[in-house]
Design a binder for these strands. Structure first.
Ligand code: MN
Ligand code: MN
Ligand code: ZN
Ligand code: ZN
Lengths: 124, 124
DNA sequence: CTAACAAATGCGACACAATTGCATTAAAGA
DNA sequence: TCTTTAATGCAATTGTGTCGCATTTGTTAG
């Protein structure tokens, strides 16, 4: 079960670091200058999510997008921030703003997927 | 462009009213005791969303769920509340709690899709 | 009540995202 | 260098949602 270092892993991570925004599998594949199989990219992305290196955002198009995770002090993944999808430039990004919520009694929240849609700073 | 009343429309609405929670197309189809085509149900649901009768939630499984809209005073649809997906009973429901957010300067928000996941009151 | 128009439906095909089984390749430690 | 098994490529598969087109049916005008 120990993870191995592979060119694919590094390439995927590099693309996401450079982009600085959330990306889908096909967007990543386009940016990678290597011929890597679709399924492999998905597997790499899923493993990164399991390991807390990335986090997954599901947008209202039903597609999965992936972005780097900043782990906090406790090495715990935090997906507790809003995401923003721009209707103009079609970019999905992590906002710094935390999701603050209250839920009715006896509900407990394990994780969240919150996407705001509108016009981003670059397109306004 | 004027809408017509059909048995399908009424059946779909009835199912959603009775359920009192968000449902996917296939869940609705199972609950309807009529043989209605998949595409037709989708078209009915889409029309209801256009008309503000329903609103659409995209969960983190990438699927669309539909729930009744309470229109507010101005007859405007409000999807600005949290949704909750229970990991135990697999139910998706509208929470009464509003989504309050702040976004960085020059961002403008048109709509939102916020789903919290965890354990609901019935399952805790 | 009937005819005419167009909205709604059924059916099949399609598009697309994501996953899976299985044979093959290659990373890492001994 | 050898062994182990994680990672990959490929093809097939699953699943959701949409679309074109012929047909049906709700609505309204006459
Ligand atoms: Mn994020
Ligand atoms: Mn809702
Ligand atoms: Zn933008
Ligand atoms: Zn529950």
């Amino acid at each position: 079960m120990k993870r191995r270092n592979t060119p694919t892993k590094e390439a995927v991570l590099e693309v996401l670091k450079t982009a600085g925004k959330a990306m889908s599998q096909d967007a990543i594949e386009q940016e990678i200058h290597m011929d890597i199989n679709r399924a492999t990219i998905y597997r790499v992305l899923n493993r990164f999510c399991e390991d807390g290196v990335l986090h997954r955002i599901v947008a209202d198009d039903g597609k999965q997008y992936f972005a780097l995770s900043d782990k906090n002090d406790n090495n715990k993944v935090s997906d507790n921030h809003f995401h923003f999808k721009c209707l103009a430039c079609d970019t999905i990004e992590c906002l710094p703003n935390e999701v603050s919520f209250t839920v009715p009694n006896a509900y407990s929240v394990a994780h969240m997927n919150c996407v705001l849609t509108g016009i981003c700073k670059d397109c306004s």
